[in-house]
Design a protein around this nucleic acid. Structure first.
Lengths: 219, 219, 219, 219
DNA sequence: GATGAATGAGCATTCATTCAT
DNA sequence: CATGAATGAATGCTCATTCAT
């Protein structure tokens, strides 16, 4: 049993590979679960179906995840995080101008909804109406996203030197904006029969919400 | 064979009572189901629990409703209809002014969310993420409500002699507004820890959305 | 309330009508049950389906028949009786000659199977494998029919002055003959794909069984 | 990486044992089901009763068999196959003589009915009058058995140099013979009160049917 | 006699989860 | 770590039967 003494604390190569494989397995399972949850619904998807789709055994699914719900929670968290990172980075990229704010909004439609409709479905449909644990994750995701939007409004207001008439209103505005994103995305992505230009729709929605925000900024 | 010629086609008293009782049973079952679905979630509510809560037998539940899903669909339809009637009547009461529009919006919070939080929960949480049949009912409810809002915008625009810069945008505005209502209601009713003055919040939300609408009206 | 005194013991006209109507109702229900049992199977036919088909209420079905099983038993008995009467009368019509015996056999195919395939189905398929009570009726029907055949054999033997080599064998012959009728009918009526001339088949079967019987007659 | 080259493709001992255990479980369940179906009837036997009798859990029953019906179908198939193998082997053992033909017939009573009355019951009573799937299996079993008998007749005819007067009649003869076996077995095994010597009965039945067959052979 | 709403025992089936191998 | 057979609680739903009207 020789230890690699040159680089202490360094993990054994085999351990590294193990970790990579482990991460890979986890990913595969999560991807399969996402696909199935969206296609058939959480309740109509059984653990063994997920296992099949991921080409592992049921036991393996339960080795990586405590239970089926844990998969949904994990997906909810991941997607929430992804969305936040995307929108958040857009906001921080923006220089606190109205245009930057608009850009971030459009990015939601362009860079999230269009390339990842299944993630929209999971967040806005499949994660809804489950146990407290799932609801907690969903709430956390929405709350953080709302908080990001709220801060962006505040930052923009400060940057533009047009403070909010009532700073407390920022929260309502943020919640409203998230509500707009949510419903507009779901509506035009899944409920509209005719092919809609989601980007055109997104532009209108963003114009609408920006005007709403301006209403709360001092002149 | 004497016929009651005064009131031809009048049903026998006993038949009338039967019908009333029948309608009453249905109501009782629906009410019990609503209560349980909201309290425990649709899936964690069993048919026999509903029967118990309604003080009837399981068989009776299934005599009045094809299956458990039918209860959820029926509740979704009923609540959607109720909401539409409320908001719609407010809109039609409004005389096509911005104030009328605002009033209708506030009414949603004041006359629907506050007195019937359980209906909000059913519509915005429990009815989500189920079979196609439920989704269809949910879609229909939202679509009709959206349509009402859209027409209200158009009517207001015409009445104020400030036509929409782009009439096609009315749909996006309506969808956005519904999204605001939905998320604001859910957020402040169920997710906010501190006691929030939902009416205050509603006022801000309405001010926000009205400003958004004005942005699309020609000056 | 005048009584018709001319013909004492005569039933009141209204009572007569009642009886006729009662018998009619019963018939209608039995016919509906037969149709449904054959089409869907006994277990897959519900009492209310029978009621619907007979255009009466479930309660009425249960007024005339103790339970669903009673319908099956009654049908089994009726059809057994009908079959016996037909075959039996043919046998008694026959003058104790081989030709008479053959004629009775052919009559089974010609006058029973072809005009009433549904009765064949009930007797040979639907009445099988149920409760003891049904099995008892089925057994009785078969036993009596077998007994008729046995007596016909004995009568013919006597009449032809060719006694059975072993009189006790008559029973086995009769059972065998009934078995032939049963399976040949069922096979060619329901299991053969191609259109078979059931009468041609019947002739062969009868020739077969008559030869078998002759084997047991002294020369 | 050493390969066991002596016995390539040999399975691991544990795998082999697993397979044997699996087969054993299946057998145990089937045996329990057969016993119960015959004793109580298919419909009056519940899945959990089968599980109890087989000393496994309900889930295990459903792990091995799609549903309760699948058990009945499987039993029908197995018993049909067994019967065919027995009778078929007897026929093929027979050298195409009448005696061989008789022997095969007697074997049905001696080697099948007497040692396995429960199988007779399943085939001739419990498998009757169920869904299309069961009927299909039953039909297949009977059809194949009939076909075996038909071929035996033809073979015998050829071997004895006494061709059939009408070759097409062979099918009717075979069907008739199967009918005789079926009803004679069921009658004397389950319907006769007095203890009957089934072998004596079988001899008479076989004598009867052989005479019937001879009637169709040219002299 | 006729009705049909109400009953509730009964059952097939599913599926999340575990654990011996 | 991976497997997949085994578990059994849980539940939706049916339907024969009753009985008040």
């Amino acid at each position: 049993m020789q230890e690699n003494t040159d680089t202490p604390m360094q993990e054994k190569p085999s351990t590294v590979r193990r970790k990579r494989e482990k991460a890979h397995r986890e990913r595969t399972i999560l991807d399969a679960a996402l696909r199935l949850f969206v296609a058939k619904g959480f309740h109509r998807t059984s653990a063994s179906e997920i296992a099949n789709a991921a080409e592992v055994s049921v036991g393996t699914v339960y080795f990586y995840f405590k239970n089926k719900e844990a998969l949904l929670i994990r997906l909810t968290e991941e997607i929430s995080y992804e969305l936040r990172k995307l929108v958040g980075s857009e906001f921080s990229l923006s220089d606190g101008t109205l245009d930057g704010f608009k850009g971030a909004g459009l990015s939601f439609f362009k860079d999230f909804c269009i390339p990842h409709p299944e993630k929209v479905t999971l967040l806005f449909r499949e994660a809804v109406g489950h146990s407290q644990a799932v609801e907690k994750a969903r709430k956390k995701g929405f709350t953080q996203l709302t908080e990001d939007v709220r801060k962006a409004i505040l930052f923009m207001a400060e940057n533009m030197d047009r403070p909010l008439t009532n700073p407390e209103s920022a929260d309502v505005l943020a919640v409203s904006i998230v509500g707009i994103y949510e419903r507009v995305a779901y509506n035009y992505l899944f409920w509209k029969e005719g092919e809609t230009d989601i980007l055109k729709v997104g532009e209108d929605a963003v114009a609408f919400l920006v005007a709403g925000v301006e209403r709360f900024l001092k002149p």
